[in-house]
């Protein structure tokens, strides 16, 4: 056994006889063995205090119960709605027909009651409105140049004047 193999064997619970014999003839490994036993006793003495939470099982159960709460999909909601018709005293397929009929009636009512005004009167195109606003702004600027008192203080005043115009 070479020195590395000998030192590696110290990690085992029971090092082989050859490793023990090696120590008799190798001063470096003897010194390393001293350090090894010293290290082992130091590690043995390191016992951090473990404080166990008394309610771990309870906390786990609570967490698992939260996870178990079903997140209902649209499909399962519709299925659930159909299943709620189970209480109705209709035999077999009649129950399904009654549920489907009610659903269909609700949809038809919804369509009839839908407000039609929005479709009849289309909103003005926003782009056109913006163009009109810009044209009005230009027109106001042009008007301001006809008033010497206002036009002396350049753009700022013009901006303020136009903004006042638009606030009204």
């Amino acid at each position: 056994m070479n020195c590395r193999q000998v030192r590696q064997s110290w990690m085992d619970a029971a090092p082989p006889v050859a490793a023990v014999r090696h120590l008799e003839s190798c001063a470096r490994c003897r010194a390393a063995w001293e350090q090894h036993t010293h290290m082992q006793s130091a590690l043995d003495a390191w016992q951090p205090e473990t404080r166990l939470p008394p309610d771990l099982t309870l906390r786990l159960r609570r967490q698992l119960a939260l996870e178990a709460k079903p997140r209902r999909s649209v499909g399962s909601r519709i299925r659930g709605w159909f299943e709620s018709w189970d209480g109705v005293p209709h035999p077999g397929r009649l129950r399904l027909a009654a549920a489907s009929g009610t659903l269909l009636a609700a949809i038809c009512l919804g369509i009839l009651a839908w407000p039609h005004t929005a479709a009849v009167a289309p909103a003005p195109a926003p782009a056109r409105g913006v163009v009109r606003d810009l044209q009005a702004l230009n027109h106001d600027r042009g008007m301001l140049t006809n008033f010497p008192l206002l036009s002396t203080s350049a753009g700022n005043t013009a901006g303020a004047a136009s903004s006042t115009t638009y606030a009204n």
Binding site: Q8, Q35, M39, S41
Partner: peptide, 21 residues
């Protein structure tokens, strides 16, 4: 095994100067 060997070698060196508890 190699990982452990390297780790113990480092610890051996680091704890060499440490006296008994």
């Amino acid at each position: 095994k190699s990982l452990l060997f390297r780790a113990y070698e480092v610890l051996r060196g680091q704890l060499e100067q440490l006296e008994a508890m």
